[in-house]
């Protein structure tokens, strides 16, 4: 699914969060949205998910305007993982993951065999099969984060928008998550992640969109976007894109004076 935004303006209260932003995410690619706090990453993802209506500009999914997608049809193709790790009741991990199947279930129908397969696969992908019956409210932050990622995976979407999916995960589970997201992209899905970890973006993403104050500063391949001058201008840091033992990383030396 090709996700595209043209001249996107978004006003939240009195603040203009997005100011004429252009964005594109291609099928079979993982796209990272990076930028400092308050750049508008979360607002962009919400707009791409159809949760916010832009004050100007338009979002299209596969060339079709967002408004032309009935919410339930969109939910079968597009999954959105919010930054907040909200779970209100003491549901078991499996019950939370099963919520991802709601758009696929006809009204009043229970869990089908296909639902059960998707749920079990998502639990296994996030390495939480052994926690399936634990109430999510009793879990650690990282465990709960993995349950919520699994919920989005169980939705079996054509496109996945994930806001800070790696936050709170230990290094091993960050890698597990990104290997899985890479596999999804290779399988022809569209993956968009908002990220703060520049090294994860450098290593795993096909394209990077660098944002600042609601605009796109640079977009393209990691080595082109993660240039020292871009990072200095946007983040105010002294950083360098490098490849160490074959792994692309961003070395951050210090905050610029």
């Amino acid at each position: 699914m090709k996700i595209e935004a043209c001249g996107l303006h978004m006003r939240l209260g009195s603040r203009e969060v997005l100011r004429g932003l252009d964005f594109v995410a291609h099928t079979g690619e993982m796209t990272a949205v990076i930028g400092p706090n308050g750049a508008g990453k979360t607002t962009l993802l919400k707009a791409l998910a159809g949760l916010l209506t832009p004050s100007a500009g338009a979002v299209t999914l596969d060339g079709r305007a967002m408004a032309d997608w009935p919410p339930l049809v969109r939910a079968r193709s597009l999954a959105y993982l919010p930054q907040e790790r909200t779970t209100h009741w003491a549901l078991s991990a499996r019950a939370v993951v099963a919520l991802g199947r709601l758009p696929h279930q006809p009204m009043g129908a229970g869990e089908s065999a296909a639902d059960a397969r998707a749920i079990d696969a998502a639990l296994a992908a996030m390495d939480i099969g052994h926690l399936a019956e634990r109430p999510v409210l009793e879990m650690s932050g990282g465990e709960r984060a993995r349950v919520l990622v699994a919920r989005a995976l169980a939705q079996e979407p054509v496109a996945l928008l994930a806001d800070e999916p790696a936050a709170g995960l230990d290094p091993a589970h960050q890698l597990t998550l990104f290997h899985h997201l890479t596999a999804l992209a290779s399988a022809g899905r569209t993956v968009v992640v908002a990220l703060h970890d520049l090294s994860l973006a450098a290593r795993f993403c096909h394209r990077i969109v660098l944002m600042q104050a609601g605009r796109t500063i640079a977009a393209g391949a990691p080595e082109d976007v993660l240039k020292s001058e871009h990072l200095a201008a946007v983040y105010g840091i002294n950083a360098r894109y490098a490849t160490i033992e074959g792994v692309p990383v961003v070395l951050v030396a210090d905050v610029l004076p």
Binding site: K46, A49, G50, L51, P71, L72, V73, R74, A75, R76, L78, A79, Y80, L81, P82, E84, T86, T87, H88, W89, L91, V96, L99, G100, L102, P103, M107, L148, R151, Q155
Partner: peptide
């Protein structure tokens, strides 16, 4: 179903197709 989905908060519920 909407109440089940709301367990995940309003944004996630809407992204699951809940009005």
């Amino acid at each position: 179903r909407a109440l089940d989905a709301l367990t995940l908060g309003e944004d996630a519920a809407r992204s699951l197709g809940v009005d």
